[in-house]
């Protein structure tokens, strides 16, 4: 009984005391890599938010310009953002501007460290940042504890739309898409041909679906795939010079839709569908089975609505 008692106490303690007391953060140790001329990638952990990674889970890209770095996504906490800012200041001559690809917190909770320079996002992203900042922040404080110290989410101040843009002499092509979330910004760096896809692409890490619209997502993949690129940075997962991230993300979306559609059509309940685990071919991806479990809860109603016809109403 001692082990069970301990397990319960741990659970209760997690609930009652701020986690800040629990996590001792060893700091963020960035490993930036120059993947193309003037294109730096700081790769995120291929995992979910956890004390072990301090929320540094998404890929951050910095493009060198005459006026400093163009920073694409700002990290998951204020401290993470500050570490990224240090790198930009020391190695890239400061920051020219920051872009947030979408409103999920791992991509913009580091904005504070970049607030002295323009922070840009799609209009819908800005709205969702403002609307969800508090709920997202509360959740992350509970998960990350001390890593979140000083984090006050700061939505992007400036709206951008798709199209070409020049920052610090470097041309950028912005693509306004959606599907992973309500508004997803992808970027092409025409100088090197590097495509920075945000969370529209995942590689070796299970895609997340809290705001997914699978059909729109596939449409966005079609548009991105039509762009000739020399290398691809997914939102989560390694940089590649081939199109593996496209094939894998598309296959995952199809397989997920197929599995949940089948489950709803066989009369399974969501708890059973969750416990049945991810599609076998994707069971080994980073963040699975947890990401699949979450996705079932997040997306179940979409499939249930299709599987259950109208049979009655108020008598």
């Amino acid at each position: 009984m001692i082990t069970r008692r301990t397990a319960l106490l741990t659970g209760t303690a997690a609930l009652l005391t701020p986690l800040a007391a629990r996590a001792t953060d060893p700091g963020y140790h960035l490993k930036p890599a120059e993947i193309a001329d003037g294109v730096w990638l700081i790769e995120g952990a291929q995992d979910s938010f956890a004390p072990a990674n301090g929320g540094a889970i998404c890929n951050i890209v910095m493009l060198r310009t005459d006026q400093g770095a163009v920073v694409i996504d700002s990290g998951g906490t204020a401290l993470h953002g500050a570490a990224l800012r240090d790198f930009a200041d020391q190695r890239l001559g400061g920051v020219a501007a920051t872009l947030n690809t979408h409103h999920h917190p791992d991509h913009w909770f580091g904005n504070q460290a970049f607030a002295d320079r323009p922070i840009l996002a799609l209009p819908a992203t800005r709205g969702l940042q403002a609307q969800n900042a508090q709920a997202l922040s509360e959740g992350l404080y509970r998960i990350l504890g001390g890593w979140m110290r000083g984090t006050v989410p700061l939505p992007a101040a400036t709206a951008v739309t798709g199209g070409n843009m020049v920052i610090g002499g470097r041309e950028l092509r912005l693509l306004a898409l959606s599907g992973h979330s309500q508004a997803d910004l992808a970027l092409l760096d025409p100088t090197t041909g590097t495509l920075i896809a945000g969370d529209l692409l995942f590689l070796d890490r299970a895609p997340s679906f809290p705001d997914a619209d699978l059909d729109a997502w596939r449409g966005a993949l079609d548009r991105l795939a039509a762009i000739p690129a020399s290398g691809i940075v997914p939102g989560h997962g390694p940089f590649m010079r081939d199109s593996r991230a496209f094939a894998q993300t598309r296959a995952y979306l199809d397989a997920f839709q197929d599995r949940l559609g089948r489950a709803a059509d066989l009369g399974l309940a969501p708890a059973e569908t969750l416990a049945a685990g991810p599609m076998p071919e994707f069971a080994g991806l980073g963040a699975n089975p947890e990401e699949y479990h979450r996705a079932v809860v997040q997306r179940w109603r979409d499939f249930e609505d299709m599987a259950l016809p109208l049979i009655g109403g108020t008598a």
Binding site: G11, A14, L15, S48, N132, L136, G139, I143, E291
Partner: peptide, 15 residues
Amino acid sequence: FIDAMGGGCSAPAVA
């Protein structure tokens, strides 16, 4: 036992 902590990309579920 159900833990009330979420952990997703949008942790917790968006309000």
